[in-house]
Design a protein around this nucleic acid. Structure first.
Lengths: 147, 147
DNA sequence: CGTAAACCCGACAAAAAAGGTCGGGATTTT
DNA sequence: AAAATCCCGACCTTTTTTGTCGGGTTTACG
């Protein structure tokens, strides 16, 4: 149960851009300080662009910049751009999916849906500016369930 | 961002056992109704046993059974047994891990820690009996963030 | 206008992980 | 002893991940 480097690098790149927000386009070389494979990062930035999270300026002096304010970009969007939508079981995401072993009354289905919803909500609550400000609050609702 | 079949099959198997809880050992063949590759499932059940989640009885009339009551087994334990611990970035799980690109003040680290904690808590709250009873309540703390 | 600095893009490839299969061994009941 | 089971490691195939590479396109600037 781990995140791929795509997701990690993608978030690192976005955090980098958030820090430089307002300072004009950041060239690929500028990302050098992150110590990530440059050619690979270029690909990832392409995905982020196609997902509408970054804008690019071509030509000399060009580079990448956030398409929106850091407080309007969530971790959910970034990870989804890099790794596709969160999906615990195909039968949940894709409606025309096979039997999932126990069609009809599959008892696991509820779990997948629940988890997908909760985790997406969680990821959707965290923005780039929250990260810069280390503003990651624990929602104080964790109702104790210890029998 | 998807779960592997290991995680899925593992949970399916555990739900199956939870349903038959109290009915004695369930042989591998009994799992047949789940329509999963038998030889593969056998492997997975081995992992579940080694993780202490199922007990086995060998010999004729043998099979697998839950090692504890369904309300004492969480989805977290099951998924961890199948896929290893949740880990967004190595630097969080493993303390002697390399630079993670921006050692020192890595701003992403807080996110990984936060997410790991939240998701583990979430998964740890769901038990097999919750699943059988479709008792997946939304913790009513989801503070709306829609600006 | 020419050149250099950038991004853009598709093809390729090595390595790792996923997803199984197989054969035989060990245990236990009957 | 035979049959039903689990146990285990070795092996294999396919897919995904994690990149690399080469060349094309766009644009600022002198």
């Amino acid at each position: 149960m781990k995140l791929s480097t795509k997701g990690k690098y993608g978030l690192y790149a976005m955090i980098f851009l958030a820090r430089r927000h307002g300072e004009g386009p950041q060239s690929l070389k500028a990302f050098g300080e992150l110590n990530l494979p440059e050619a690979y990062l270029e690909q990832l930035l392409g995905s982020l662009r196609r997902a509408g999270l970054v804008n690019t300026v071509r030509g000399t002096q060009g580079g990448y910049l956030l398409s929106r304010e850091p407080e309007k970009i969530t971790v959910k969007e970034i990870l989804e751009a890099m790794e596709g939508p969160l999906c615990f079981a195909d039968c949940v995401a894709d409606s025309d999916q096979p039997p999932c072993a126990h069609s009809g009354d599959c008892p696991a289905r509820g779990v997948w849906e629940y988890l997908t919803g909760e985790i997406n909500a969680l990821l959707g609550r965290i923005t780039l500016s929250d990260i810069l400000n280390q503003n990651l609050h624990h929602p104080e609702n964790v109702t104790e369930e210890t029998t």
